[in-house]
Lab assay of single mutants.
Amino acid sequence: RLYEREDHKGLMMELSEDCPSIQDRFHLSEIRSLHVLEGCWVLYELPNYRGRQYLLRPQEYRRCQDWGAMDAKAGSLRRV
């Protein structure tokens, strides 16, 4: 689950498959919190699986710093 605000607030989007462009699919370029329910995912800073990568394991991420990012920029997401 992807959230537009910290602490799992605001608009929530659910994802169960790879997403090459978060902007195209959800009209957002920033994700401020996440909740990974199962499996491991890689969040990429840019669309089409480019830029900085962040490995996400099943857990709650209340803010972008929790997954190691300096800002909430999110371009794509892929399951590993």
Rank of each mutant, 00 (worst) to 15 (best):
Y54K: 03
M70G: 11
S76W: 06
I31S: 04
D18M: 06
R63S: 12
Q23W: 14
Y54V: 06
M70S: 13
R52G: 07
G51P: 00
Q23D: 08
S29M: 07
S33L: 02
Q23C: 10
G51T: 06
D24K: 09
R63D: 05
N48F: 15
E45W: 04
C64W: 12
E6R: 04
C40G: 10
V36E: 01
A72I: 03
Q23F: 12
R5I: 08
K9H: 10
S29H: 13
D71A: 06
A72E: 06
G39W: 01
Q23T: 15
Q53H: 07
G75V: 02
E14I: 09
M13I: 11
C40P: 07
I31V: 15
P20C: 09
R52P: 12
S33P: 02
L43N: 04
H35E: 15
Q53A: 12
R62A: 15
E60D: 09
P20Q: 07
G75E: 00
E38W: 08
Q65R: 10
D71P: 01
M13V: 14
S16H: 14
E60L: 14
D66S: 08
L46F: 15
Q59W: 06
G68D: 04
E30V: 08
L28E: 07
R57D: 10
R25D: 07
M13K: 10
A74C: 10
D24F: 03
D7W: 06
G51D: 06
E60T: 13
D24M: 10
R63I: 04
M13W: 14
L56T: 04
E17A: 10
L56Q: 02
F26V: 06
K9V: 07
Y54C: 04
Q59G: 15
N48Q: 14
R5T: 03
L56G: 01
L37F: 09
L2A: 06
I22C: 05
Q53S: 15
D66H: 06
E6M: 04
E45M: 03
Y44V: 03
M70I: 15
L37I: 13
Y3P: 02
Q53W: 09
S16Y: 12
G10D: 03
A72M: 00
A72F: 06
M13E: 08
D7E: 14
R50V: 12
G75A: 05
S29A: 11
R62G: 09
D18E: 04
S33K: 00
D66Y: 05
D18P: 04
S29Q: 12
L56V: 09
S76T: 05
G10F: 04
D18R: 01
S29D: 13
E38Y: 08
S29K: 14
F26K: 02
S33G: 02
G10H: 02
E45H: 05
S21V: 05
M70L: 13
I22M: 05
G75H: 03
Q65T: 14
L2G: 01
L56M: 05
H27C: 12
M70R: 14
G75T: 00
S21K: 06
G10V: 02
M70Q: 11
L15I: 07
H35Q: 15
S29V: 08
R57A: 14
Y44P: 01
P47D: 10
S21H: 10
A74G: 06
Y49I: 06
A69N: 08
R32K: 14
Y3R: 02
E38P: 04
M13T: 07
Q59C: 13
H27G: 15
L77E: 00
K9R: 11
R32G: 15
P20E: 12
C40Q: 15
A72R: 03
C64F: 12
L11Y: 09
R52F: 05
L55F: 13
D71N: 10
